[in-house]
Amino acid sequence: MTAQPNRHPINDEFLLDYAAGTAPEPIALIVASHAALNPASRKALDQLEATGGALLQTIEPVSVDGGALDRALAHLDEMPSRPSHATPVGDSLLPPALRAYAPRGVDALPWRKRFGGLAEAELPCGSGERYKVSLLRIGAGRSIPRHTHRGEEMLLVLKGGFSDEHGHYVRGDVCFADESVDHRPVADQDGECLCLAVTEGPIWLKGLLGFFLSPFLRR
């Protein structure tokens, strides 16, 4: 693949929240998934984590328990010095961060047909009611109906591609929309498009058709 300009990275603000460890789980999930597919965002994340490291270095230290070191040393014996971490197994289409949410692969998820060639599988993601996290399958050449948002919506392309009024998005790209955006993503003609969608608040479909279809996209 030829090097392309990084046209559709995720917003810096979300990278910062991820690096700082304050992002809610749905945001952390889409940031980690995106950064695994987009080297520029990965680099930006590395820089923000290094900033966290520098802040840790310069934080005003507090005193620890008198016996803290001895306690730690005593536990070293129970713990072999070797890694216990492994790449999660699962669908290689999914970035590692997403695999834990679809342990048996994309096809095994509880897909529900929506309308117009759209299918949705909701992913359980602990964040209460604020966000909805799902995978979306948009059939080749089909579209998500024109809609606006009460809050923020992010779509991360995992397979295929889609276009809206603002550009063309392929694997690793993030399409961000909020209250001010009214858009209609259309999948590329040459195949199905698979996206991770993180949506804040309800989505409002436009037009009369949208009025009748809205309950299908809302929770």
Partner: peptide, 30 residues
């Protein structure tokens, strides 16, 4: 304690070319 023991356990995965130690320990603590 948990963070520092993780530092011990994960030491073999630390790659000095990728991150400084403060950065690495920051991400473990986070």
């Amino acid at each position: 304690q948990d963070v520092m023991l993780t530092v011990w356990r994960r030491a073999p995965t630390y790659d000095p070319a990728l991150a400084g130690v403060s950065t690495w320990i920051f991400t473990i603590a986070r």
